[in-house]
Design a binder for these strands. Structure first.
Length: 881
RNA sequence: GCGGAAGUGGUGAAAUGGCAAACACACUAGCCUUAGGAGCUAGCGCCGAAAGGCUUGCGGGUUCAAGUCCCGCCUUCCGCACCA
């Protein structure tokens, strides 16, 4: 090697060259219009927040999506593979504060930086459809949707609790609350304040969002379960208990005070999933925030203090995030409620474990048949009355609480003897007949609070008018532009409120002076529909063109982190259903298949600045190249599992790529010497066109044609066999299993085998067309994983056109077939020997070979072979006594 | 507490119920050299000198055959969590 320097794999040079070429050809990764006669494939990776730096999690996510997109292109699909920026959000405001830089400038700068990183990584995105959510061209459609939802009755306002820092005098996002204190004022307790907030009525779709999960077979079970739990459907009964009449007289002093009860005070509605246990209810528990409690405390100072303490405690627990950890306790109110089924008086308590925002904020307490009620009753010596008798009572001893529904009613009057389920139905019917209750389905899912008292988000398109109240901004006045020259401070509420030119406006109805809404939208709004926008990203008349969306949707494969399993993925599904009901789309669900990749960790822990274990993609790319970095991200673990980043591993992949480079460049001249093969430029997926893209009808003349199989030497056949086995393995893996780690391993095996045959290759024992077939196909298999190197070597081999659009190879089963295989022989299930037989041998032949084996004969001598199990092609097992 | 996933060499991992540890990393020994983050050869689960034996968190079971299927535990990670 006279010129070693020239001979070394140099990713930096190769990758720069191809990056420039690809950048000069924007159509390379562009999707074809809906009129394309190719089948469509929409592969989508979750769009990043433009923090300014890609992290390894991004690299992994995009390496997976890019490999898939590239393989689908090679298989002849019309692929949509877009990218965008989830560009609104708090960090831009924090950066503005810290660096005195406008959020827009900061954000756009970050986008430019991250886009450079993506290009450097060689990710194949169609940048013509890039979506940036903080630009008015995009967010105006958030406002437009908001108004459509308002018209549909899906938008409303109500008072709701927000985090408020008294020092900052502003609202804090949940992430800004650290251990119950403000993130900027570590000693300042965050308060819960009631403010008017905007809500989207996602609960109207609760049932459908739940049902829809059943159709999402291409989603991970984990995600579906998480969503199911989040929606939290419960079937039960609502029952009105009555406030005992004499207790309407309030006060506990000798001088009773007569007060007028609020109209709803007479009935106390509880929700229960176990109405069959209602005869066992021995107390009634109210949430501290229950309106009736306020009524009780208004006339009872002592009770008021006690409830106050309870509330404080609860608030603290909520702020520190461990609401479940506080001890259960309660306060007797001294009042009684009447069980409508039997007229029994039971005491009313206020309990800290009853939640106002679930069910009705009131429960009946049945200690005999509920774990928590049992604990509570024991603590306060409340009677425990058993009303369900277990059907299967193996122990004989009846230990309470008995939670199961596998029982019959006792101590329940006319309902005695009924099975739990039957009793539930009958009791429910009785309640409905007497109008003190009804069957009810409730959900844990709550309406989506979308307003944020922050600056860097989509302005909510409403106007407050003294005369007309809340007035929607008319469509022709959209977008409501976010003012850009604005001083961001942490003081005095929403920053928008201090921009007079923004706030002061006129009422669209009466023309009088009015004020703009200063709340902005949750950034989850932006990400709920961005993937529709990609299909028609520059539309100025509508969010998108419905016909185009109909062509592309649903997304064929969505790929992202499992951390979005709930919020983003429920909101997106909700948004899709709303758009469907607005007649804009036809699909019920946004994505047919979802893949959640594992985290990238280092030294067993999630990468984080505080742990100091962050690996920068830029470093990796600079040291080993984009191909090696990406390929390692796919090789080190199956994509759905956590990946432990080991730099030695990246170096290993880099060495592997160098081996490929040496192998191919060394033998390229020989491979090139064969006549160029006529590769079809019309790329079609064989499965879809019934077009068999096999060696024969490809019109090419590799192995089979140019050198009839019989005339091929052993090494050629052996290598071609390995090649075709590798094609089969990788093709299959792309179709569903996605174990790209074993795909890369299979390519390594192939390369190892080629390398082992280096002597034959060099000696010219492999005919040039076979050599060409071997090396070109190797490069095709490599292309989805290491596109830069593939492009470079494809050129070197004299490959036609771009490797990125070359047809995906097809495995020839005949060539892939082994002619001799090894069959393990077991005796009584234990491995004893291995015999070689011709591939495809029948059971008899294999059995004979096994019985003839020396080791086997030694073991069976003088013994009885009771049974012989032969699994052709697999194994032989002799049962010997 | 409820739900989900996972437990295999020194490490990352592989294995449609059919030879456990493919492919890599690390390590060891040797070779080569224009000394490179290079290349080549060999070794590398455990016990044993070897023959051979043992080995997929633990305990049972199904099966000719179990890392894989079933039952019961244990551990770890993730999500939800006072949900009535």
């Amino acid at each position: 090697m006279a010129d070693d320097k020239e001979q070394r794999y140099d990713p930096a040079t190769i990758e720069q060259k191809w990056q420039e070429r690809w950048a000069a050809d924007p159509r390379l990764y562009a999707a074809e219009p809906a009129t394309s006669n190719k089948p469509k494939y929409y592969v989508l990776e979750m769009l990043p927040y433009p923090s300014g730096q890609l992290h390894m999690g991004h690299v992994r996510n995009y390496a997976i999506g890019d490999a898939l997109a590239r393989q689908m292109w090679m298989r002849g699909y019309n692929v949509l593979h877009p990218m965008g920026w989830d560009a609104f959000g708090l960090p831009a405001e924090n950066a503005a504060l810290k660096n005195n830089m406008p959020p827009r400038e900061w954000t756009l700068g970050n986008i430019a930086a991250m886009k450079r990183q993506m290009l450097r990584l060689g990710l194949g995105y169609d940048w013509a459809t890039e979506v940036t959510t903080c630009l008015p061209e995009y967010y105006r459609w958030n406002q437009w949707f908001f108004l459509r939802m308002y018209e549909k009755g899906l938008v409303y306002r109500k008072k709701s609790k927000v985090n408020w820092c008294p020092e900052c005098a502003t609202v804090l996002a949940n992430e800004q609350v650290v251990d119950g204190c403000c993130w900027r004022h570590e000693d300042t307790q965050v308060e819960q304040r009631d403010l008017e907030q905007w809500f989207l009525r996602i609960t109207s779709y609760a049932e459908e969002l739940l049902q829809g999960l059943e159709t999402l077979e291409g989603w991970p079970e984990k995600v579906r379960t998480m969503q199911r739990n989040w929606i939290g459907r419960s079937e039960g009964t609502e029952v009105d208990f009555f406030l005992a009449p004499d207790d309407i007289v309030g006060g506990t002093t000798e001088e009773p005070v007569i007060v007028t009860p609020p109209p709803d005070a007479k009935r106390i509605r509880v929700f229960t999933t176990r109405v069959d246990t209602i005869f066992g209810a021995t107390s009634l528990q109210l949430a501290p925030e229950h309106p009736l409690v306020a009524f009780f405390t208004s006339v009872d100072g002592a009770l008021k203090n006690q409830v106050g303490t309870l509330l404080d405690e609860q608030k603290k627990a909520r702020e520190s995030g461990d609401l479940g950890a506080i001890e259960k306790h309660g306060i007797p109110t001294g009042k009684d409620a009447i069980n409508p089924y039997n007229g029994e008086r039971i005491p009313i308590w206020v309990a800290n474990y009853v939640l106002m925002d679930y069910g009705t904020g009131a429960i009946m307490s049945v200690p005999a048949h509920d774990e928590r009620d049992f604990e509570f009753a024991k603590k306060y010596a409340i009677p425990i009355r058993q009303v369900i008798k277990p059907v299967h009572d193996e122990t004989g001893a009846e230990h309470l609480p008995f939670i199961s529904e596998d029982g019959v009613l006792i101590n329940s009057g006319e309902y005695d003897g009924l099975k739990c389920v039957d009793a539930q139905r009958q009791l429910q019917e009785a309640a409905a007949r007497s109008a003190f209750g009804e069957g009810k389905v409730i959900f844990r899912l709550k309406d989506w609070g979308v307003s944020r008292q922050r600056y860097w988000g989509t302005p909510i398109p409403f106007i407050h008018c003294e005369r007309d109240g809340m007035v929607p901004v008319p469509d022709d006045q959209l977008p409501v532009l976010l003012p850009e020259k604005i001083e961001i401070t942490q003081q005095g509420g929403s920053p928008l409120g201090r921009v007079p030119s923004f706030v002061n406006t006129t009422c669209p109805k009466c023309g009088g002076p009015a004020r703009r809404e200063t709340d902005t939208m949750d950034t989850f709004v932006d990400s709920s529909w961005y993937f529709y926008r990609y299909t028609d990203a520059r539309d100025t008349k509508a969010p998108f063109d419905s016909a185009t969306v109909q062509y592309w949707f649903p997304i064929d494969q969505y790929i992202g982190g499992v951390e979005h399993a709930i919020l983003h993925l429920i909101y997106s599904r909700f948004w899709t259903k709303v758009m469907r009901d607005l007649g804009m789309v036809k699909n019920d669900e946004p994505a047919r298949r979802l893949f959640t990749q594992g985290m990238v960790i280092k030294d067993g822990a999630k990468m984080s600045k505080s742990k100091g274990n962050v690996v920068s993609p830029d470093d990796m790319v600079a040291r080993y190249g984009a191909d090696a970095t990406r390929m390692y991200a796919l090789f080190a673990a199956p994509p759905d599992r956590d990946l432990d980043w080991q730099e030695d591993g990246v170096a290993g992949v880099s060495r592997f790529l160098a081996r490929v480079w040496r192998l191919v460049t060394k033998h390229a001249p020989q491979a090139r010497s064969s006549a160029p093969e006529a590769r079809s430029s019309a790329v079609e997926d064989d499965a879809l066109k019934g077009h068999d893209f096999s060696r024969a009808d490809r019109g090419s003349q590799p192995a089979g044609a140019l050198a009839p199989e019989g005339s091929l030497s052993g090494p050629s056949l052996k290598l071609l066999r390995k090649l075709h086995q590798t094609i089969a393995k990788i093709t299959l893996d792309f179709e569903g299993r996605w174990h790209f780690n074993t795909c890369v391993a299979a390519i390594m095996e192939l390369v190892n085998e080629l390398q082992d045959a280096d002597a034959q290759l060099t000696a010219g024992e492999i005919p040039a067309p076979v050599m060409r077939e071997l090396l070109q196909t190797l490069i095709l298999l490599l292309a989805p994983f290491a596109p830069f190197l593939a492009a470079e070597l494809w050129d070197d081999l004299g490959g036609e056109g771009s490797v990125l659009r070359a047809p995906w190879p097809k495995s020839d089963p005949e060539l892939a077939k082994e002619d001799e295989i090894e069959i393990p022989v077991q005796i009584n299930g234990k491995l004893i020997s291995v015999v070689r037989v011709a591939a495809g041998s029948d059971a008899k032949t294999i059995e004979a070979a096994a019985l003839a084996d020396e080791k086997v004969r030694a073991r069976t001598a003088g013994k009885n072979v009771v049974k012989v199990i032969v699994v052709p092609g697999r194994t032989v097992n002799l049962v010997v006594k």
